[in-house]
Design a binder for these strands. Structure first.
Lengths: 190, 190
DNA sequence: GTTAAACATGTAAACAATGACATGTTTAAT
DNA sequence: ATTAAACATGTCATTGTTTACATGTTTAAC
Protein backbone atom coordinates (compact mmCIF):
# COMPACT_ATOMS: atom_id res chain seq x y z
CA UNK A 1 0.00 0.00 0.00
CA UNK A 2 1.61 3.09 1.25
CA UNK A 3 1.82 5.86 -1.28
CA UNK A 4 5.18 7.56 -1.57
CA UNK A 5 6.71 8.62 1.73
CA UNK A 6 3.49 9.45 3.50
CA UNK A 7 5.16 9.12 6.89
CA UNK A 8 7.61 11.82 5.88
CA UNK A 9 4.75 14.28 5.30
CA UNK A 10 2.82 13.10 8.32
CA UNK A 11 5.83 14.02 10.46
CA UNK A 12 6.47 17.33 8.71
CA UNK A 13 2.78 18.11 9.15
CA UNK A 14 2.82 17.32 12.85
CA UNK A 15 5.74 19.72 13.23
CA UNK A 16 3.91 22.56 11.42
CA UNK A 17 2.79 24.34 14.60
CA UNK A 18 5.16 23.28 17.38
CA UNK A 19 8.50 21.61 17.81
CA UNK A 20 8.12 18.00 18.86
CA UNK A 21 10.21 15.03 19.97
CA UNK A 22 10.02 11.58 18.45
CA UNK A 23 8.07 10.52 21.48
CA UNK A 24 5.57 13.36 20.97
CA UNK A 25 5.04 12.29 17.38
CA UNK A 26 4.55 8.69 18.47
CA UNK A 27 1.93 9.94 20.94
CA UNK A 28 0.15 12.01 18.28
CA UNK A 29 -0.38 8.84 16.28
CA UNK A 30 -2.29 7.47 19.26
CA UNK A 31 -4.69 10.44 19.14
CA UNK A 32 -7.14 11.62 16.47
CA UNK A 33 -4.75 11.57 13.54
CA UNK A 34 -3.93 7.96 14.38
CA UNK A 35 -7.32 7.12 12.90
CA UNK A 36 -5.89 7.90 9.46
CA UNK A 37 -2.17 7.31 9.69
CA UNK A 38 0.15 5.74 12.21
CA UNK A 39 3.60 4.29 12.68
CA UNK A 40 5.62 2.56 15.37
CA UNK A 41 8.31 4.48 17.23
CA UNK A 42 11.01 2.46 15.48
CA UNK A 43 9.90 3.75 12.11
CA UNK A 44 9.46 7.29 13.39
CA UNK A 45 12.97 7.60 14.84
CA UNK A 46 14.41 6.22 11.61
CA UNK A 47 12.40 8.66 9.49
CA UNK A 48 13.38 11.60 11.71
CA UNK A 49 17.04 10.73 11.17
CA UNK A 50 16.46 10.71 7.42
CA UNK A 51 14.60 14.03 7.48
CA UNK A 52 17.50 15.57 9.42
CA UNK A 53 19.93 14.39 6.73
CA UNK A 54 17.67 15.87 4.08
CA UNK A 55 17.65 19.13 6.08
CA UNK A 56 13.87 19.30 6.15
CA UNK A 57 14.03 19.46 9.95
CA UNK A 58 16.62 20.51 12.52
CA UNK A 59 17.04 19.38 16.09
CA UNK A 60 18.08 20.56 19.53
CA UNK A 61 18.23 19.02 22.99
CA UNK A 62 15.82 19.88 25.75
CA UNK A 63 16.33 18.61 29.29
CA UNK A 64 13.41 16.97 31.03
CA UNK A 65 14.42 16.76 34.68
CA UNK A 66 18.14 16.37 35.38
CA UNK A 67 19.37 13.77 32.93
CA UNK A 68 16.63 12.89 30.47
CA UNK A 69 17.43 14.41 27.11
CA UNK A 70 14.52 15.10 24.77
CA UNK A 71 15.56 15.62 21.18
CA UNK A 72 13.26 18.29 19.78
CA UNK A 73 12.69 18.76 16.06
CA UNK A 74 11.81 21.94 14.14
CA UNK A 75 10.71 22.39 10.53
CA UNK A 76 13.32 24.19 8.41
CA UNK A 77 12.29 26.59 5.63
CA UNK A 78 13.00 23.81 3.16
CA UNK A 79 10.79 21.49 5.17
CA UNK A 80 7.95 24.03 5.25
CA UNK A 81 8.09 24.42 1.48
CA UNK A 82 8.14 20.69 0.89
CA UNK A 83 5.17 20.19 3.21
CA UNK A 84 3.25 23.03 1.59
CA UNK A 85 3.72 21.57 -1.89
CA UNK A 86 2.55 18.17 -0.71
CA UNK A 87 -0.52 19.61 1.01
CA UNK A 88 -1.74 21.06 -2.30
CA UNK A 89 -1.17 17.85 -4.26
CA UNK A 90 -4.30 16.23 -5.67
CA UNK A 91 -4.53 12.45 -5.57
CA UNK A 92 -5.09 10.94 -8.98
CA UNK A 93 -6.47 7.65 -7.72
CA UNK A 94 -7.85 5.99 -4.60
CA UNK A 95 -5.91 3.27 -2.89
CA UNK A 96 -7.43 0.08 -1.55
CA UNK A 97 -8.65 0.67 2.01
CA UNK A 98 -7.65 -2.65 3.45
CA UNK A 99 -10.07 -4.32 5.84
CA UNK A 100 -9.40 -7.84 7.03
CA UNK A 101 -12.90 -8.32 8.45
CA UNK A 102 -14.50 -7.61 5.07
CA UNK A 103 -11.98 -9.88 3.37
CA UNK A 104 -12.80 -12.73 5.74
CA UNK A 105 -16.49 -12.12 5.20
CA UNK A 106 -16.08 -12.52 1.45
CA UNK A 107 -15.19 -16.16 2.12
CA UNK A 108 -18.09 -16.69 4.50
CA UNK A 109 -19.58 -19.57 2.53
CA UNK A 110 -17.30 -21.82 4.59
CA UNK A 111 -18.25 -20.36 7.96
CA UNK A 112 -21.26 -21.76 9.89
CA UNK A 113 -23.94 -19.17 10.71
CA UNK A 114 -23.31 -19.31 14.46
CA UNK A 115 -19.56 -18.72 14.09
CA UNK A 116 -20.31 -16.00 11.59
CA UNK A 117 -22.52 -14.18 14.08
CA UNK A 118 -19.77 -14.51 16.70
CA UNK A 119 -17.35 -12.84 14.30
CA UNK A 120 -19.86 -10.05 13.72
CA UNK A 121 -20.46 -9.64 17.47
CA UNK A 122 -16.75 -9.32 18.06
CA UNK A 123 -16.36 -6.74 15.32
CA UNK A 124 -19.38 -4.85 16.60
CA UNK A 125 -17.80 -4.74 20.04
CA UNK A 126 -14.47 -3.44 18.80
CA UNK A 127 -16.14 -0.82 16.62
CA UNK A 128 -18.52 0.32 19.36
CA UNK A 129 -15.66 0.81 21.80
CA UNK A 130 -13.75 2.77 19.23
CA UNK A 131 -16.76 4.93 18.44
CA UNK A 132 -17.27 5.70 22.12
CA UNK A 133 -13.64 6.72 22.48
CA UNK A 134 -13.95 9.02 19.49
CA UNK A 135 -17.13 10.58 20.84
CA UNK A 136 -15.43 11.21 24.18
CA UNK A 137 -12.60 12.92 22.35
CA UNK A 138 -15.11 15.00 20.44
CA UNK A 139 -16.99 16.00 23.57
CA UNK A 140 -13.73 16.90 25.31
CA UNK A 141 -12.44 19.10 22.48
CA UNK A 142 -15.58 20.58 21.00
CA UNK A 143 -18.33 20.11 23.57
CA UNK A 144 -21.91 20.50 22.40
CA UNK A 145 -22.34 24.18 21.76
CA UNK A 146 -19.37 24.66 19.44
CA UNK A 147 -20.50 25.23 15.86
CA UNK A 148 -17.82 24.42 13.24
CA UNK A 149 -18.39 27.73 11.46
CA UNK A 150 -17.15 29.58 14.55
CA UNK A 151 -14.16 27.32 15.13
CA UNK A 152 -10.61 28.66 15.12
CA UNK A 153 -8.76 27.69 11.90
CA UNK A 154 -6.26 25.87 14.12
CA UNK A 155 -8.94 23.48 15.37
CA UNK A 156 -10.75 22.92 12.07
CA UNK A 157 -8.45 20.13 10.90
CA UNK A 158 -8.94 18.33 14.16
CA UNK A 159 -12.71 18.83 13.87
CA UNK A 160 -12.86 17.43 10.34
CA UNK A 161 -10.76 14.41 11.16
CA UNK A 162 -12.72 13.58 14.29
CA UNK A 163 -16.09 13.92 12.58
CA UNK A 164 -14.75 11.82 9.70
CA UNK A 165 -13.63 9.05 12.05
CA UNK A 166 -16.93 9.13 13.96
CA UNK A 167 -18.94 9.02 10.77
CA UNK A 168 -16.85 6.13 9.46
CA UNK A 169 -17.41 4.07 12.59
CA UNK A 170 -21.14 4.86 12.76
CA UNK A 171 -21.48 3.76 9.17
CA UNK A 172 -19.50 0.59 9.83
CA UNK A 173 -21.65 -0.27 12.83
CA UNK A 174 -24.86 0.37 10.91
CA UNK A 175 -23.73 -1.97 8.14
CA UNK A 176 -22.69 -4.62 10.70
CA UNK A 177 -26.13 -4.59 12.29
CA UNK A 178 -27.95 -4.69 8.98
CA UNK A 179 -25.83 -7.65 7.88
CA UNK A 180 -26.42 -9.48 11.15
CA UNK A 181 -30.15 -9.10 10.59
CA UNK A 182 -29.84 -10.69 7.18
CA UNK A 183 -27.85 -13.59 8.58
CA UNK A 184 -30.40 -14.17 11.35
CA UNK A 185 -33.29 -14.06 8.88
CA UNK A 186 -31.55 -16.59 6.66
CA UNK A 187 -30.82 -18.78 9.67
CA UNK A 188 -34.51 -18.71 10.62
CA UNK A 189 -35.46 -19.66 7.09
CA UNK A 190 -33.26 -22.74 7.14
CA UNK B 1 0.70 -2.00 7.69
CA UNK B 2 -0.33 -5.40 6.86
CA UNK B 3 -1.29 -7.73 9.65
CA UNK B 4 0.28 -11.17 9.59
CA UNK B 5 0.30 -12.79 6.18
CA UNK B 6 -3.10 -11.54 5.10
CA UNK B 7 -2.21 -12.04 1.44
CA UNK B 8 -1.62 -15.70 2.17
CA UNK B 9 -5.19 -16.11 3.41
CA UNK B 10 -6.63 -13.87 0.72
CA UNK B 11 -5.13 -16.23 -1.88
CA UNK B 12 -6.19 -19.40 -0.06
CA UNK B 13 -9.67 -17.89 0.21
CA UNK B 14 -9.86 -17.06 -3.48
CA UNK B 15 -8.97 -20.67 -4.24
CA UNK B 16 -11.71 -22.03 -1.95
CA UNK B 17 -14.21 -22.66 -4.76
CA UNK B 18 -12.22 -23.03 -7.98
CA UNK B 19 -8.67 -23.55 -9.08
CA UNK B 20 -7.10 -20.34 -10.29
CA UNK B 21 -3.95 -19.05 -11.93
CA UNK B 22 -1.83 -16.18 -10.62
CA UNK B 23 -3.37 -14.05 -13.32
CA UNK B 24 -6.89 -14.96 -12.18
CA UNK B 25 -6.04 -13.98 -8.63
CA UNK B 26 -4.56 -10.72 -9.83
CA UNK B 27 -7.84 -10.09 -11.71
CA UNK B 28 -9.96 -10.89 -8.66
CA UNK B 29 -8.20 -8.10 -6.79
CA UNK B 30 -9.48 -5.74 -9.47
CA UNK B 31 -13.07 -6.78 -8.73
CA UNK B 32 -15.22 -6.48 -5.58
CA UNK B 33 -12.74 -7.96 -3.13
CA UNK B 34 -10.16 -5.44 -4.34
CA UNK B 35 -12.12 -2.88 -2.28
CA UNK B 36 -10.80 -4.53 0.87
CA UNK B 37 -7.53 -6.18 -0.07
CA UNK B 38 -5.25 -6.10 -3.06
CA UNK B 39 -1.75 -6.88 -4.23
CA UNK B 40 0.36 -6.45 -7.35
CA UNK B 41 1.07 -9.45 -9.52
CA UNK B 42 4.71 -9.41 -8.42
CA UNK B 43 3.69 -10.04 -4.84
CA UNK B 44 1.07 -12.61 -5.80
CA UNK B 45 3.45 -14.79 -7.85
CA UNK B 46 5.97 -14.67 -5.00
CA UNK B 47 3.36 -15.65 -2.43
CA UNK B 48 2.07 -18.51 -4.60
CA UNK B 49 5.59 -19.88 -4.78
CA UNK B 50 5.82 -19.75 -1.00
CA UNK B 51 2.42 -21.42 -0.52
CA UNK B 52 3.52 -24.22 -2.85
CA UNK B 53 6.62 -24.77 -0.73
CA UNK B 54 4.45 -24.84 2.36
CA UNK B 55 2.21 -27.40 0.61
CA UNK B 56 -0.92 -25.37 1.23
CA UNK B 57 -1.58 -25.40 -2.51
CA UNK B 58 -0.57 -27.61 -5.43
CA UNK B 59 -0.24 -26.72 -9.08
CA UNK B 60 -0.72 -28.10 -12.57
CA UNK B 61 -0.36 -26.73 -16.08
CA UNK B 62 -3.29 -25.91 -18.29
CA UNK B 63 -2.80 -24.98 -21.94
CA UNK B 64 -4.52 -21.90 -23.23
CA UNK B 65 -4.26 -22.12 -27.01
CA UNK B 66 -1.20 -23.92 -28.38
CA UNK B 67 1.73 -22.62 -26.38
CA UNK B 68 0.47 -20.44 -23.52
CA UNK B 69 0.86 -22.27 -20.25
CA UNK B 70 -1.44 -21.32 -17.40
CA UNK B 71 -0.23 -22.52 -14.04
CA UNK B 72 -3.33 -23.46 -12.08
CA UNK B 73 -3.38 -23.73 -8.31
CA UNK B 74 -5.54 -25.93 -6.08
CA UNK B 75 -6.02 -25.87 -2.30
CA UNK B 76 -4.58 -28.93 -0.58
CA UNK B 77 -6.28 -30.45 2.48
CA UNK B 78 -3.66 -28.72 4.61
CA UNK B 79 -4.50 -25.46 2.88
CA UNK B 80 -8.22 -25.89 3.47
CA UNK B 81 -7.64 -26.51 7.17
CA UNK B 82 -5.35 -23.52 7.53
CA UNK B 83 -7.88 -21.29 5.74
CA UNK B 84 -10.74 -22.59 7.86
CA UNK B 85 -8.88 -21.85 11.08
CA UNK B 86 -8.09 -18.35 9.92
CA UNK B 87 -11.69 -17.67 8.87
CA UNK B 88 -12.87 -18.32 12.43
CA UNK B 89 -10.23 -16.15 14.06
CA UNK B 90 -11.50 -13.12 15.93
CA UNK B 91 -9.53 -9.90 15.63
CA UNK B 92 -8.48 -8.55 18.98
CA UNK B 93 -7.92 -5.00 17.83
CA UNK B 94 -8.65 -2.67 14.93
CA UNK B 95 -5.85 -1.49 12.70
CA UNK B 96 -5.44 2.07 11.48
CA UNK B 97 -7.40 2.48 8.24
CA UNK B 98 -4.94 4.70 6.45
CA UNK B 99 -6.35 7.59 4.47
CA UNK B 100 -4.01 10.17 2.97
CA UNK B 101 -6.80 12.65 2.20
CA UNK B 102 -7.86 12.78 5.84
CA UNK B 103 -4.23 13.08 6.92
CA UNK B 104 -3.68 16.03 4.59
CA UNK B 105 -6.87 17.61 5.83
CA UNK B 106 -5.63 17.48 9.40
CA UNK B 107 -2.96 19.99 8.38
CA UNK B 108 -5.41 22.22 6.53
CA UNK B 109 -4.57 25.29 8.57
CA UNK B 110 -1.81 25.93 6.01
CA UNK B 111 -4.04 25.52 2.94
CA UNK B 112 -5.96 28.53 1.52
CA UNK B 113 -9.75 28.00 1.35
CA UNK B 114 -9.85 27.97 -2.45
CA UNK B 115 -7.15 25.30 -2.72
CA UNK B 116 -8.86 23.36 0.03
CA UNK B 117 -12.12 23.30 -1.91
CA UNK B 118 -10.23 22.14 -5.00
CA UNK B 119 -8.81 19.23 -2.99
CA UNK B 120 -12.31 18.38 -1.81
CA UNK B 121 -13.73 18.61 -5.35
CA UNK B 122 -11.06 16.26 -6.59
CA UNK B 123 -11.74 13.77 -3.81
CA UNK B 124 -15.48 14.05 -4.41
CA UNK B 125 -14.92 13.23 -8.07
CA UNK B 126 -12.78 10.19 -7.38
CA UNK B 127 -15.22 8.88 -4.80
CA UNK B 128 -18.29 9.51 -6.96
CA UNK B 129 -16.75 7.59 -9.86
CA UNK B 130 -15.89 4.74 -7.58
CA UNK B 131 -19.39 4.68 -6.11
CA UNK B 132 -20.94 4.57 -9.59
CA UNK B 133 -18.69 1.67 -10.56
CA UNK B 134 -19.71 -0.20 -7.43
CA UNK B 135 -23.40 0.44 -8.07
CA UNK B 136 -23.03 -0.87 -11.61
CA UNK B 137 -21.41 -4.00 -10.24
CA UNK B 138 -24.25 -4.36 -7.77
CA UNK B 139 -26.93 -3.91 -10.44
CA UNK B 140 -25.16 -6.40 -12.68
CA UNK B 141 -24.87 -9.12 -10.04
CA UNK B 142 -27.93 -8.59 -7.90
CA UNK B 143 -30.33 -6.48 -9.93
CA UNK B 144 -33.21 -4.82 -8.10
CA UNK B 145 -35.57 -7.61 -7.17
CA UNK B 146 -33.00 -9.83 -5.42
CA UNK B 147 -33.56 -9.90 -1.66
CA UNK B 148 -30.49 -10.92 0.37
CA UNK B 149 -32.53 -13.41 2.40
CA UNK B 150 -33.17 -15.43 -0.75
CA UNK B 151 -29.58 -15.28 -2.01
CA UNK B 152 -27.55 -18.41 -2.58
CA UNK B 153 -24.90 -18.88 0.16
CA UNK B 154 -22.27 -18.72 -2.57
CA UNK B 155 -23.27 -15.15 -3.44
CA UNK B 156 -23.77 -13.84 0.08
CA UNK B 157 -20.10 -12.94 0.65
CA UNK B 158 -20.07 -10.99 -2.57
CA UNK B 159 -23.31 -9.27 -1.56
CA UNK B 160 -21.98 -8.23 1.85
CA UNK B 161 -18.72 -6.95 0.47
CA UNK B 162 -20.39 -4.95 -2.29
CA UNK B 163 -22.95 -3.38 0.04
CA UNK B 164 -20.15 -2.61 2.49
CA UNK B 165 -18.10 -0.86 -0.18
CA UNK B 166 -21.11 1.09 -1.44
CA UNK B 167 -22.05 2.14 2.06
CA UNK B 168 -18.47 3.21 2.78
CA UNK B 169 -18.32 5.39 -0.31
CA UNK B 170 -21.76 6.93 0.26
CA UNK B 171 -20.73 7.80 3.79
CA UNK B 172 -17.44 9.27 2.59
CA UNK B 173 -19.22 11.40 -0.02
CA UNK B 174 -21.77 12.61 2.51
CA UNK B 175 -19.02 13.70 4.87
CA UNK B 176 -17.14 15.41 2.02
CA UNK B 177 -20.17 17.48 1.08
CA UNK B 178 -20.95 18.41 4.68
CA UNK B 179 -17.35 19.53 5.19
CA UNK B 180 -17.38 21.55 1.98
CA UNK B 181 -20.47 23.36 3.23
CA UNK B 182 -18.68 24.27 6.43
CA UNK B 183 -15.69 25.58 4.51
CA UNK B 184 -17.90 27.68 2.23
CA UNK B 185 -19.80 29.11 5.19
CA UNK B 186 -16.55 30.04 6.91
CA UNK B 187 -15.27 31.60 3.69
CA UNK B 188 -18.41 33.75 3.45
CA UNK B 189 -17.96 34.86 7.05
CA UNK B 190 -14.40 36.07 6.46
C1' DG C 1 11.35 3.57 49.76
C1' DT C 2 9.55 0.74 46.24
C1' DT C 3 7.21 -0.08 42.22
C1' DA C 4 4.60 0.53 38.03
C1' DA C 5 3.41 3.45 34.35
C1' DA C 6 4.68 6.77 31.46
C1' DC C 7 8.45 9.12 29.41
C1' DA C 8 12.34 8.81 26.23
C1' DT C 9 15.53 7.01 22.31
C1' DG C 10 17.54 4.09 19.54
C1' DT C 11 19.07 -0.47 16.34
C1' DA C 12 18.50 -4.78 13.68
C1' DA C 13 16.26 -8.61 11.55
C1' DA C 14 12.40 -10.06 9.20
C1' DC C 15 8.48 -9.43 6.65
C1' DA C 16 5.21 -6.87 3.35
C1' DA C 17 4.55 -4.23 -0.75
C1' DT C 18 5.66 -1.56 -4.84
C1' DG C 19 7.75 -0.40 -9.30
C1' DA C 20 10.67 -1.51 -12.75
C1' DC C 21 12.58 -4.88 -15.59
C1' DA C 22 11.87 -8.80 -18.64
C1' DT C 23 9.49 -11.84 -21.88
C1' DG C 24 6.19 -14.10 -24.59
C1' DT C 25 1.05 -15.57 -26.43
C1' DT C 26 -3.75 -15.02 -27.71
C1' DT C 27 -7.76 -12.53 -29.15
C1' DA C 28 -10.36 -9.15 -31.33
C1' DA C 29 -10.53 -5.21 -34.11
C1' DT C 30 -9.18 -2.88 -38.35
C1' DA D 1 -1.80 -8.83 -42.30
C1' DT D 2 -1.10 -5.74 -38.63
C1' DT D 3 -1.74 -3.95 -34.27
C1' DA D 4 -3.40 -3.10 -29.63
C1' DA D 5 -5.35 -4.96 -25.61
C1' DA D 6 -5.70 -8.52 -22.77
C1' DC D 7 -3.69 -12.76 -21.22
C1' DA D 8 0.18 -14.85 -18.82
C1' DT D 9 4.46 -15.42 -15.63
C1' DG D 10 8.27 -14.29 -13.46
C1' DT D 11 12.60 -11.64 -10.91
C1' DC D 12 14.98 -7.88 -8.54
C1' DA D 13 15.96 -3.60 -6.12
C1' DT D 14 14.02 -0.53 -3.15
C1' DT D 15 10.94 1.11 0.11
C1' DG D 16 7.73 0.63 3.94
C1' DT D 17 6.43 -1.57 8.26
C1' DT D 18 6.56 -4.52 12.25
C1' DT D 19 8.61 -7.05 16.04
C1' DA D 20 12.09 -7.80 19.00
C1' DC D 21 16.11 -6.30 21.21
C1' DA D 22 18.26 -2.86 24.19
C1' DT D 23 18.63 0.81 27.65
C1' DG D 24 17.72 4.36 30.81
C1' DT D 25 14.80 8.38 33.48
C1' DT D 26 10.87 10.62 35.69
C1' DT D 27 6.47 10.81 37.91
C1' DA D 28 2.78 9.39 40.65
C1' DA D 29 0.82 5.98 43.56
C1' DC D 30 1.20 3.11 47.63
Amino acid sequence: MAARRVLKYAILGLLRKDDKSGYDITSDFKQAIGQFWSAKHSQIYTELKKLLEEELISSYIELSGEKLEKKMYTLTEKGKEDLHTWLLTQDDHLETEKDVFALRLYFLKDIPSADLLALFENQLNLRTNKLNMLKEQYAYHFGEENRPVDLDADDLGHYFVLTKAISREENYIFWLMESMDIIRQRQYGE
